[in-house]
C-alpha cells in the first residue's frame, strides 16, 4: 500500500515537471517501484522484466532521444482545463465502477477459477516444468508468444528502417522556417 502511494506521488512529479531529463529519471524510479509492487503481487518473472526493461532499456532509449532532440518542454499555449475535466470525469466513473469489483486478494473470483487451476495442477505432468509461468508462456500458449516475438521483430525492423538510413541533410523549406 505504501509502495502504491509512492507510485502515485512520483506520477504527480512526472506530471508537474517540465524538465524532460528529470521526467525520464523519475520514470526510471517509477519503473523500479513498479517492479517492487509486482514482487508484492507474486509476479516475480514480471518484476524481473520490468526492472530490466522499464528502468534499464527504456530509460537509456529515452535519454538517447533527449540527446538527439531537446530537454526542455515549453508551456503549452492553451489551458489544460478541458483535458483535466475529461481526466477527472473518466476517473470518477472508473472509481464508481470499482465498487462492483471483488476485493483485493480474494481467491474465489472468476479470474482465479477458470483456466488457472488447470495450469497449476497439470504443469508438472504435461511439461515437467515447475515454473508455471514458463510452461504457460512457451508451451500452453506458445502460439501467443510467437505472435509477441513477431511484434518485437516488427518494431525492431521499423526502428531500423526509420533511423538506419543516411540522414537527409538537404534543409527543406519547412525546416528552415521553423528554426
Amino acid at each position: 500500500m505504501a509502495l502504491l502511494t509512492l507510485l502515485a506521488t512520483i506520477t504527480i512529479g512526472i506530471i508537474r515537471l517540465r524538465n524532460l531529463f528529470a521526467v525520464v529519471v523519475l520514470g526510471g524510479i517509477y519503473s523500479f517501484l513498479m517492479a517492487s509492487v509486482m514482487i508484492v503481487l507474486d509476479a516475480v518473472d514480471v518484476a524481473m522484466t520490468e526492472a530490466s526493461v522499464g528502468a534499464g532499456i527504456s530509460t537509456v532509449l529515452m535519454l538517447a532521444t533527449l540527446y538527439l532532440t531537446k530537454t526542455q518542454e515549453t508551456v503549452p499555449a492553451h489551458t489544460p482545463l478541458l483535458p483535466l475535466f475529461v481526466a477527472v470525469a473518466t476517473g470518477l466513473v472508473l472509481v464508481f465502477g470499482t465498487f462492483a469489483l471483488p476485493p483485493f486478494g480474494a481467491a474465489d473470483t472468476p479470474v482465479n477459477l477458470n483456466v488457472a487451476p488447470y495450469y497449476l495442477e497439470n504443469s508438472i505432468r504435461d511439461t515437467l516444468v515447475p515454473n508455471v509461468v514458463t510452461s504457460v508462456l512457451a508451451s500452453y500458449r506458445g502460439f501467443d508468444t510467437l505472435g509477441e516475438v513477431a511484434v518485437v521483430f516488427t518494431a525492431g525492423i521499423a526502428v531500423l528502417m526509420l533511423l538506419k538510413g543516411k540522414r537527409n541533410m538537404k534543409p527543406g523549406p519547412k525546416r528552415r522556417r521553423v528554426r
Binding site: L61, A64, T127, L128, S139, G156, K164
Partner: peptide, 26 residues
C-alpha cells in the same frame, strides 16, 4: 515438451536481445 520449451526460449532470447541492441545502435 520440456525440450521444446528450451528451444523456443532460445529463439525468444535471440530475437529480444538482437532487437534491443539493434535499436540502441541505431
Amino acid at each position: 515438451q520440456e525440450y521444446g520449451i528450451i528451444l523456443v526460449e532460445i529463439g525468444v532470447l535471440v530475437t529480444v536481445s538482437g532487437t534491443m541492441v539493434a535499436i540502441f545502435y541505431s
